[in-house]
Simulated assay, not measured.
Amino acid sequence: MNARIPKTILALLAAAGLSGAACAQEVTLRLVSAFAENGIYVQRLLPWVHKVNAEGKGVLQINFIGGPKAIPPFEAGNAVKTGVVDMALNTGAFYTNVMPEADFLKLTQIPVAEQRRNGAFDAINKVWNEKANMQYLARMVENQPFHIYTNKKVDKPDLSGQKIRITPVYRDFFQALNANVITTPPGEVYTALERGVVDGYGWPIGGIFDLNWQEKTKYRIDPGFYDAEVSLVMNLPAYRRLTEPQRAYLHKQLLALEAENGFWVKYASDEVARQEKAGIQAIRFDAATAKAFRDKAYDIGWASAIKQSPEIAGRFKTLFSK
């Protein structure tokens, strides 16, 4: 286990009676979220958890322990790897400390359903199994491009002189745009904006209202780039301990979860309108500049991936691209 995870958290998990199996026929899986419980990702997930539990009595149950108050966002990946918890709702950008390849998932340009058909999903799991001791279960967020949000207006794709909060998702891209980058957990961004520690941040099109960042945000730069990846991952030994009926039941429910991903298209559109109403102004470039901006994001993203892990990135690029 990771010594950095507080003993009080481990005691909490043990006290919750989450030892793994309620009986020989039923297993209870411990689930945490790297995202806040009041945020859209968890709010979309919880009805699914309730459905799994209602339909899975005697087979499989999920015990949702909580969000970052249970385990810090950047420790959730390691908690899954080491078996402190069984599952996590997480994004690859938050567990690059476990495996740098986790960040490559932002570069997918095809739906998860197609990833399951064309071999991408199997390729992901081969790497996750070998390098992270994890099973990649399902992707529950799609069609959520990242954007640059800033309090300093620009007229071209140049962030010179700006301090921008990042995660590994867009570090290389933002640095190529001449930004000074700062890494902080999401929970610290509001205060950083308020105090002028940062001038802006990278974030998907949705979710800023969950964190009240709209109160401290003036501009959003269009177009978006990459695709926010939020997925369920599971400790590999825990996954392999499942019986065939338990695994089949979980897989059926995971596919049902992914089948609801159409929600995110309308959500993105609604968030654009909501941001405009809140006073966030869109900065839009001409068509040629916008295309060059987006192409640059992917060129830099893949160049970084290939530099970091040539064989895996090369395999993923073929499978992830349109």
Results as ranks from 00 to 15, higher is better:
S19N: 14
R195Q: 14
P223D: 03
F104S: 05
K81E: 10
V169Y: 07
E260A: 09
L255V: 09
V85F: 04
A192E: 15
D299W: 15
A179L: 06
L254S: 06
E194M: 15
R171W: 06
G17I: 12
K156F: 02
D199E: 12
R171K: 11
Y249N: 03
E271A: 10
A24H: 14
T108R: 01
N235Q: 08
D158M: 09
A3W: 13
Q308S: 12
G262K: 08
K216V: 02
I71C: 11
K156Q: 00
Q308R: 10
R315W: 13
P237G: 04
V127N: 01
A113I: 07
P68Q: 10
L255W: 10
I65K: 08
A93V: 05
Y298G: 12
N38D: 15
N235I: 01
L18Q: 10
Q135M: 00
A192P: 04
A268K: 04
S160G: 14
T184P: 08
L89K: 01
L46K: 04
I62W: 00
R4P: 12
F74T: 00
Q144E: 04
V127A: 01
V127M: 06
V85Q: 03
G67C: 06
E271W: 03
V98N: 02
T243V: 05
N180M: 14
S321A: 14
P310M: 02
P310G: 11
